[in-house]
Design a protein around this nucleic acid. Structure first.
Lengths: 349, 349
DNA sequence: TTGAAAGCGCTAACAA
DNA sequence: TTGTTAGCGCTTTCAA
């Protein structure tokens, strides 16, 4: 066995005090020490005080791994998210963590970089770590991922998506409904020539759902997306700029461009302004997500308000309740409302 | 003891296979199973294959807690950050995690909400969890936090700060130098009446350093901040707007406003534009951080480019090397360069 | 109200 | 090259 003074990795070892040390010094058994640690009401107040004092004196830290092994509880929750950049999901993770913290749980974070295969690997890693619950983004995960989830019996919630047809626990909004609302709004204003600069749909069911819903909703009006003004675009301002340039190269500008998210939309807006294309008179633009990014720009962007923070909080609450009360996680739809700004208007022919 | 079928919390228990199960089924000892798991070269290839097959068949997952207990290695790194919102630190955490992932380490994240007392609590929690390394933001931490770090012997790195006078391992840039460079730039342009809209300095040494350095550097030119145009402001666009309004109420507009970060700066810029104050002719504005937010706005913001991603990567590399090779973490300065944009110019009196 | 003692699943020294 | 076995630090049953 390794020797204890190798424990502190790279550190000359001051061995951490254990319950045995506490017990010995306090003249009680380790069982009593454990009871004190776990706030058992069976311990006489006098004894408890004494044990606590010894713990403080010896700078005792409970050893989480040993605890987890003995109790098969880790008080750990995992999250696998596509990215922490762009602040798209960061707000959800932030509120998720805040809620866990209150309940004395710790968060393990893994980033998949929008790669579902990587996501599956991360998922397995987190489960090995003994997470008692998991937060995932969207409903699109590999079969292997869902199988692993199933096998492990770990409680999980998919946020940023809500699809009543799927049986996965969803705590989010319907990307489809929101995208449909955008179409209704534009068509209602009189738009007929509409293009879409969607996000990259590979491995991203939110982007895909937005795209599909736009197509379906347009079909209800006997319309379809203008092919030369429709493409998949990376979530970045310059990418949005380039996309507008490409649309112009491809042919006549449509009267409206639906963008996969606000970042793309703002790129399009900036490029339009640079080229002297009047928004919304000549071109209507819609974003998605209502990111901080667009909060104070002018003209005010028409977009969809996504309840990022609320999804994080509610997911945490649901997961904790599932763990502690044994409730199963019920899907819950959170409204994502259309915010009508100044980048959309009746087209002037 | 709890019964095994209670393990899957809220789940009817299919008990996870253990090494004993694998060993029995494969007709070997648990030591061999362990060796296979840990890629020991001592196992005969034939035997290894067989054991691996059995593991797959039984869907074996190593039990991380048991492993940690037996080997006193957790392969876990912690990070305590002020917030995940605003994407200020998110980029660093993102690249930090990516690097850890490659080395098969897992990241525990805790958010302190800019509260150093909360930070200390989080720190202790993470250490209990057995993290082998820690990522912190800035050099300002409670004495208790530093003492805990010391006692635990856990390797750590402070990013987003670089101060050669402090003995803490810093992987970051000098907020002071960068702030001084802003002053040099403005004074060089001919500004004499300069105000500062700093971030909230309580519990935030980066904000504090920027403020202090501005004052000190101005002093070198026998100048000082215009009192009525100097205040602490929350990191939010509307807060920046309100700050400019307040400066105007307080008295005469200075010729330049140094902002604590880009978010504040953009609020000031927008408000100036709304009020018809010409930037930079009537008012020069400087930001800080070079956030994605300002990448494509016009006029281009004068700001400081902060190597957020690089700090995350380098910190991960340093921490991993400290853990695995036993090197101590050496402080490292990463350049934060002044980006001169179009929001600063010679003042027109 | 307390203590004794049997594990939790794994690693690693030691023996073979 | 493999097996035996003694822990790692804690929780929890059972008995007192």
């Amino acid at each position: 066995m390794k020797k204890w003074h190798e424990v502190g990795v790279g550190e000359v070892g001051k061995r951490q005090a254990t319950q045995v040390d506490i017990a010995r010094k306090a003249g009680v058994s380790t069982a009593t020490v454990s009871r004190v640690l776990n706030r058992s009401p069976l311990v006489k107040p006098q004894v408890r005080e004494h044990v606590l004092a010894v713990m403080a004196e010896l700078k005792y830290y409970p050893h989480a791994a040993a605890r987890a092994l003995a109790s098969s509880r880790t008080y750990t929750i995992g999250a696998v998210i596509p990215t922490l950049n762009n602040s798209i999901f960061a707000a959800s993770v932030n509120s998720f963590e805040a809620r866990l913290q209150l309940a004395n749980y710790t968060l393990l974070v893994a980033v998949s970089n929008y790669d579902l295969t990587v996501e599956e690997v991360q998922l397995k890693r987190l489960i090995e770590r003994g997470v008692e619950g998991l937060l995932l983004i969207g409903n699109a995960h590999t079969d292997g991922a869902y199988r692993t989830l199933e096998d492990s019996g770990v409680v999980y919630a998919n946020i940023w998506a809500y699809d009543r047809k799927l049986r996965h626990p969803n705590i989010g909004f319907s990307n489809r409904k929101a995208a449909s609302a955008i179409v209704d709004h534009l068509v209602g204003l009189g738009h007929r020539r509409i293009g879409m600069l969607a996000g990259i749909t590979a491995g991203n069911d939110r982007a895909r759902d937005r795209m599909i819903a736009v197509r379906e909703q347009l079909a209800k009006y006997k319309l379809q997306l203008v092919g030369e003004a429709t493409m998949e675009v990376e979530y970045a301002i310059p990418a949005g700029r380039r996309a507008l340039a490409k649309v112009l190269e491809n042919g006549k500008l449509p009267t409206a461009l639906i963008c996969g998210n606000d970042v793309i939309a703002i790129g399009v807006l900036f490029e339009a302004q640079r080229r002297g294309i009047r928004v919304p008179q000549q071109l209507s633009i819609t974003g998605f997500d209502n990111m901080p990014l667009i909060q104070d720009i002018s003209p005010r962007m028409t977009t969809v308000n996504v309840p990022a923070q609320e999804m994080g909080e509610r997911a945490a609450t649901a997961i904790l309740s599932a763990i502690e009360e044994g409730n199963s996680i019920r899907s819950r739809e959170i409204k994502a409302s259309l915010i009508i700004g100044e980048t959309t208007a009746t087209p002037r022919h």
